[in-house]
Amino acid sequence: EVDTLELTRQVKEKLAKNGICQRIFGEKVLGLSQGSVSDMLSRPKPWSKLTQKGREPFIRMQLWLSDQL
């Protein structure tokens, strides 16, 4: 189980620290539009309420944070 709230907090922190905009992060890392990324980072759904497809971007965020992506 992933703590989506904590994960998105860490992602936002790393984006800010490295000067990466959400649009680029969305396109290059998540394969999503800036609007989708913005929504996901500001209002993450609980892991238990996400479908497999809904969980994929959060898994990619985890990999990106651990420099595996």
Rank of each mutant, 00 (worst) to 15 (best):
V37Y: 04
K12G: 01
V11H: 05
K49R: 04
I59R: 15
R9H: 03
Q68Y: 09
N18F: 11
W47Q: 00
Q34V: 15
Q52Y: 11
T4R: 08
R9M: 13
M40Q: 04
T51A: 09
K14H: 13
K45L: 13
S66Q: 13
G35W: 09
K17M: 10
E27Y: 06
L65M: 04
F58T: 00
S33D: 15
K28Y: 04
L50D: 01
I20V: 06
L69M: 13
Q68H: 08
E1Y: 02
V37Q: 04
G35C: 06
K12M: 05
V2S: 13
L50C: 02
V37T: 13
S66N: 15
G31K: 08
G35V: 11
K17T: 08
C21H: 12
E13T: 08
I59L: 13
E13M: 13
G54N: 06
G19L: 03
L50P: 00
V2Y: 08
T8L: 07
M61P: 01
I24H: 13
Q68W: 10
T8S: 09
L15Y: 09
S36R: 10
D3L: 02
E1I: 12
S66K: 15
I24Y: 15
P44A: 09
D67C: 01
V37F: 14
K53S: 14
R23W: 07
R43G: 05
K17D: 07
E56A: 10
V37H: 03
E1Q: 04
E27K: 13
Q22C: 04
E6V: 06
D3I: 01
L5R: 12
S66T: 13
W47K: 00
P57V: 09
G26V: 04
P44C: 08
L65R: 01
R23H: 10
Q62M: 08
L15T: 03
M40W: 14
P44S: 07
P44V: 07
F25I: 01
Q52H: 05
F58M: 02
K53G: 03
A16Q: 11
P46S: 10
L5F: 14
L30G: 02
D67Y: 03
L50W: 09
K17N: 13
I20L: 12
S48I: 05
S66P: 00
G19T: 03
V37C: 12
R60E: 01
W47E: 00
E27A: 11
K45R: 15
W47V: 00
R55E: 00
G35R: 14
L15N: 07
P46T: 10
G54Q: 15
Q34M: 11
N18L: 15
M61Y: 00
S48K: 10
S36A: 15
S38A: 14
R60H: 02
G54H: 06
V11Y: 03
W47G: 00
G35A: 13
E13N: 09
M61R: 00
L41T: 02
T51W: 12
K53Y: 11
S48R: 08
R60F: 00
Q10E: 06
Q34H: 14
L7M: 15
S38T: 13
V37L: 14
K28V: 07
V37R: 05
E6A: 09
E56G: 05
V11F: 05
D39M: 07
C21D: 09
Q62D: 01
